[in-house]
Design a protein around this nucleic acid. Structure first.
Length: 566
RNA sequence: UGGGGCGUGGCCAAGUGGUAAGGCACAGGUCUUUGGAACCUGUAUUCGGAGGUUCGAAUCCUCCCGCCCCAGCCA
């Protein structure tokens, strides 16, 4: 059912589809398709297309096919196909039994081509690739016709059949549509339909040595599947006349319409398949699912949820103008989702030892902690407290700058769900580094409230040294430092920071890969695939919004000395 | 200098002749046992520019400017 109420405004594609439905075009049927080439992993840009195609179909009681555009066997693999299926499912969409392949249409595509030849609308050209390029002309000059352009139909038929039979070497002949070498639209200057490639196709094997070009295969595939609206990106706008030409000149069973929209660009991110492939192949990242990658597998491993990605796609909209979406928009989507659903937990990333001098030696208390303040049904848990704790090094300053509310010599702060503590002494090692804080606690503040109503300005997270579980935490930052990285842009050298000696609360002991948490006051984290029961590994999905970091940055910029000590 | 598109606040994005939605970001504030979340408030006299039509234009017309895509036997 069209969800007209919920969306205050429809994008131009949905408006058009709605008009078609209202006009009862295609009998009111809506059928789309998501047509990836299995030559790489899906990324966030594909998510936009997936959400659009499956979304438009669903909103109109229609269907969306998954179709692999596997017309170039030199780049395509099963690994890529499998990853794509996994990712589309993970994103939350399903094609049921409508899994198609352009390669399944090779026979039909060949027969249609024969028809074109018979109709005098296609011919076998025996020019070399270079010669074809020379004949194509330039953007401002018309092309020239190939000397083979007027080969008799019979000869074309015979040659094309021999191409198919594998009698020729790669590059010796090609089948071309006979359209118009003088067209101002270069795509119409006798485009290539089939080329010879003695390459094994990952699905079709060695059945074929000629393979169809995208421009030829796509409209026919759409027609064969009864696609009503063929949605693609802007760079194919120039191809639409060609798309229509094939539908006009072939006895196809259906008449789809191609509509183009702007592809997604994200700031500080690269989304070209070629560049992503390079990052993987040259080892700049650890693989397609490296948590820094904008691939769906990377985002998944990083801890992103399908809901967040769908919400993001929803928020950015669909239009025709080139746009660069601020990556902050993506981060907002994941924070928004995780805030509602993830359990809070305490984890100390850079531990600083704290000894509570007036706390009884050997005593342990179990304190109540809320699992999710956004969701009462998430309940509470017990957190152990004892004499020796760890707090975050960043939560203490020998000389606290203005506006720094956390712990400092002589200052009292609250330990979340525990007690108020006051810093009495700073212990340093021979080189002057702080190694321990000696503090006292106020027994009357158990749980975090004081009977006299005083309330410290800061609440710190902590962990009991004797009970904490060691863990490794991987902090990620943007992969590129430039807002619009060039194709040869170097990656951000600090895009990955590995923290090997973190201490997390004991409730995390049995966390499993994929589990997500909010580490209070720090961010959202998920258990990495590399994690083992006795060697926990967490990925930071995204930080929490950090007002203090903002103040600090502002002070730094102002040239002011914030007195940080770092 | 051929063709095809696109230009609305810092970033997205509605609006299609009746006097500029919404989201993100940003800035204040309320609240707070996360400097989180939530909530409130503020932010385009103006829609790439200049003319014109009209009682009235981001929306119609003219001219100009800018940006993107196309010369793979890639998709």
């Amino acid at each position: 059912m069209p969800d007209l109420e919920a969306s205050s405004s429809l994008d131009f594609i949905r408006v058009r589809v709605a008009e078609d439905v209202r006009a009862n075009k295609n009998d009111g049927r809506v059928h789309t398709r998501f047509p990836p080439e299995p030559n790489g992993y899906l990324h966030i840009g594909h998510a936009k297309s997936i959400c659009l195609n499956f979304g438009v179909a669903a909103e109109n009681n229609g269907l969306c096919n998954l179709r692999f555009d596997d017309t170039n066997p030199s780049k395509e693999t099963v690994e890529f196909e499998e990853s794509i299926k996994t990712d589309v499912h993970w994103l939350g969409f399903d094609w049921d039994d409508r899994l198609y392949y352009a390669s399944d249409y090779f026979r039909k595509l060949y027969e249609y081509a024969v028809q074109l030849v018979k109709d005098g609308k296609a011919y076998v050209d025996s020019l070399t690739a270079d010669e074809i390029r020379e004949h194509r002309g330039t953007l401002t000059e018309a092309g020239r016709e190939s000397p083979y352009r007027n080969r008799p139909v019979g000869e074309n038929l015979h040659l094309f059949e021999r191409m198919r039979a594998g009698e020729f070497e790669d590059g010796t002949h090609v089948l071309r549509a006979k359209i118009d070498m003088a067209s101002p639209n270069v795509n119409m200057r006798d485009p290539v339909l089939f080329r010879i490639m003695h390459v094994t196709h990952y699905r079709a094997g060695t059945q074929w040595v000629i393979y169809p070009m995208y421009d030829y295969a796509h409209p026919i595939s759409d027609a064969l599947e009864g696609i009503t609206h063929s949605l693609c990106t802007l760079e194919f706008e120039d191809h639409r006349p060609l798309y229509d030409w094939f539908l006009d000149n072939l006895p196809v069973p259906y008449r789809p319409v191609q509509i183009e929209f702007a592809r997604l660009n994200l700031s500080y991110t690269v989304l070209s398949k070629r560049k992503l492939l390079t990052l993987v192949h040259e080892g700049h990242v650890k693989g397609w699912d490296d948590p820094r990658m904008p691939t769906l597998s990377g985002l998944r491993r990083r801890g992103y949820t399908p809901e967040a990605i769908r919400n993001f796609c929803d928020a950015i909209g669909v239009a025709k103008r080139d746009a660069v979406v601020d990556v902050a928009q993506l981060e907002h989507a994941i924070r928004d989702d995780l805030n509602r659903r993830s359990s809070r937990v305490m984890a100390v990333l850079r531990p600083l030892r704290v000894v509570i001098e007036n706390y009884p030696e050997g005593q342990t208390e179990e304190l109540d902690a809320v699992n999710n303040p956004e969701d009462a049904s998430a309940g509470t848990r017990k957190v152990p407290f004892s004499k020796v704790l760890y707090i975050e090094r960043d939560d203490f300053r020998q000389d606290p700058p203005k506006q720094f509310f956390r712990l400092a010599p002589g200052r009292e702060v609250r330990l979340r769900y525990a007690y108020f503590i006051t810093c009495k002494e700073v212990v340093k090692d021979a080189s002057g580094d702080i190694v321990e804080l000696r503090c006292t606690y106020d027994p009357a503040t158990r749980g975090g409230d004081s009977p006299d109503g005083r309330s410290p300005k800061a609440t710190l997270h902590w962990v009991s040294a004797a009970h904490a579980v060691p863990a490794e935490v991987r902090l990620y930052d943007r992969l590129f430092n430039e807002e619009r990285p060039a194709d040869d842009a170097p990656i951000n050298p600090s895009s990955l920071e590995l923290l090997a000696s973190c201490q997390v609360e004991p409730s995390l002991k049995n966390a499993k890969p994929g589990d997500r948490f909010q580490f209070e006051r720090q961010g959202y984290f998920c258990v990495d695939l590399d994690s083992k029961p006795d060697a926990l590994v967490f990925n930071r999905t995204v930080t929490l919004r950090d007002t203090w970091a903002k103040i600090e940055k502002k002070n730094l910029k102002r040239g002011g000395n914030s007195g940080t000590g770092h």
